[in-house]
Design a protein around this nucleic acid. Structure first.
Ligand SMILES: NC(=O)c1ccc[n+]([C@@H]2O[C@H](COP(=O)([O-])OP(=O)(O)OC[C@H]3O[C@@H](n4cnc5c(N)ncnc54)[C@H](O)[C@@H]3O)[C@@H](O)[C@H]2O)c1
Ligand SMILES: NC(=O)c1ccc[n+]([C@@H]2O[C@H](COP(=O)([O-])OP(=O)(O)OC[C@H]3O[C@@H](n4cnc5c(N)ncnc54)[C@H](O)[C@@H]3O)[C@@H](O)[C@H]2O)c1
Lengths: 217, 217
DNA sequence: AATCAATAAAGAAATTTTTCTTTAATAAAA
DNA sequence: TTTTATTAAAGAAAAATTTCTTTATTGATT
């Protein structure tokens, strides 16, 4: 009878996963000057069922007009608000290696409400460098800097074997959410939000479909 | 009555998503010399229900021993085979920017059965460079090189607005699967496998949980 | 040797998510 | 003006996934 995650979740996770794509699509339409968009159009873009789009949007305050669709501007405004992209949250990134640097370079994170305030590493070669205006500090300075800045999220991009050490540090300081890019699972107290982003899962799905195709032949 | 994806899928996608983590965990245990592992241990590591692990593994040929668990070596061997990680598939990467470079540097892809044979870009500054032994060619050379090498997967890491152009090129040449890292959805024929890896979805999930916590207070 | 406790496995039940159906609205066409 | 076609919305049904329950096995303990 152990609860593995307190799911008092009104909005289904798959819905939340799809929403950023709806938003990106709507932003594109807005730039092109399109005023309305129907669930059919969105569904066609996403390659999913139109009623799925309707249902997803029904979790927000967006309402559509029969025979017309949804106002593009409304989708952009409401979704970015709804997804928490319109307020900036501050984060620290630990592990300024290949993946860490890529994330630091990515303006998309900024656009979607995440500001990486500082990066940390243990490699003397990278410490002191600035990556896309974000300074890389020695990991020992984590505490002091965390105190200074209002940081609620920690991003882990160190080698898998060091993930737990870094997570412990983040928890000890009082970070609320951890975005873990290593394939390792970390152990943290229940009230800390952990999001594991394992790219290799995607690879497994592709291979599975590829080989399934092979089997059918 | 349109079919959006032919799901003749025996193994649930969530199961496939979890398996690479089981594998990584088992590989770690193997290195430490542990011979058996129970579903309880795996579940504890993954923060999920033990019966979920049992059910997941039941899709493979792995069988466990009552009161003992599963043989670690068997999990490693069977899962890497099952997930398609034990045969090398060849890929091309288009867009040798920040994210593309990170992927090229990542030995994890190699370990999980993906060999990036060549990279492509349009930026003269990057063309000709070698990133982790993978050469960066001009995109115009895609066709010729694809002919030469046995490439079945294309990885897209160009800016979102160029994703469709690149996808079209890949399809025209005859690539079977596309791993799309841009937030844009691409249109391809039905027989092409597309895996969208949108990092921002993960961000949305974290924010949703964070703000939910705030609401509960 | 007998009992206990931990576990895998299989199936049932519950839950979650997607898809289908119906209804009502309304823009466009006849 | 009337008809037609497209759409959003709400709810029902279906499908997929997870969790629970039961059973059998077996290593460890008494
Ligand atoms: N590169 C990719 O595209 C990619 C893809 C998928 C997953 N990942 C995962 O992301 C993680 C990082 O991968 P990478 O390719 O960027 O590796 P990397 O070696 O390029 O970078 C890791 C960085 O972490 C630093 N580091 C190590 N221990 C540290 C510690 N205790 N505190 C602070 N910094 C520390 C290193 O000095 C290095 O700069 C790995 O777990 C990898 O599996 C990477
Ligand atoms: N950097 C990240 O961490 C990150 C995170 C999430 C998503 N993404 C997505 O990945 C994509 C790439 O991001 P990035 O940060 O690596 O961008 P980037 O600008 O660093 O790299 C893009 C590269 O693609 C090349 N390019 C552009 N058009 C091309 C074409 N038609 N053919 C071949 N090459 C072309 C550019 O020259 C450049 O080298 C974007 O869609 C971005 O949203 C990146």
């Amino acid at each position: 009878m152990v609860q593995y995650s307190k799911k008092i979740q009104a909005v289904p996770e798959p819905t939340i996963r799809r929403m950023p794509s709806y938003l990106a699509f709507a932003e594109g339409l807005l730039r092109k000057g399109q005023q309305f968009v129907s669930s059919t159009q969105i569904a066609n873009y996403m390659n999913i069922d139109p009623t799925q789009v309707t249902k997803d949007l029904s979790y927000t305050t967006i309402v559509g007009k029969t025979r017309v669709g949804y106002e593009v501007k409304a989708i952009v405004d409401v979704l970015s608000e709804f997804l928490g992209f319109s307020v900036m949250d501050n984060a620290f990134l630990v592990g300024a290696g290949s993946l860490g640097s890529a994330l630091l370079h990515d303006s998309g994170l900024n656009h979607f409400g995440l500001k990486i305030e500082a990066a940390f590493d243990i490699n003397p070669a990278t410490i002191g460098r600035k990556i896309n205006d974000v300074e890389v500090f020695h990991i020992d300075q984590f505490r002091d800097l965390a105190q200074e800045l209002n940081v609620i999220m920690g991003i882990i991009t160190v080698p898998a074997e060091n993930a737990q050490t870094v997570a412990d540090l983040m928890v000890a300081w009082g970070i609320k959410a951890i975005w873990n890019f290593t394939p390792a699972r970390i152990k943290v107290p229940d009230d800390i939000i952990v999001q594991n982003t394992t790219l290799y899962s995607n690879l497994a799905i592709i291979f599975n479909k590829l080989h399934q195709d092979k089997r059918e032949e």
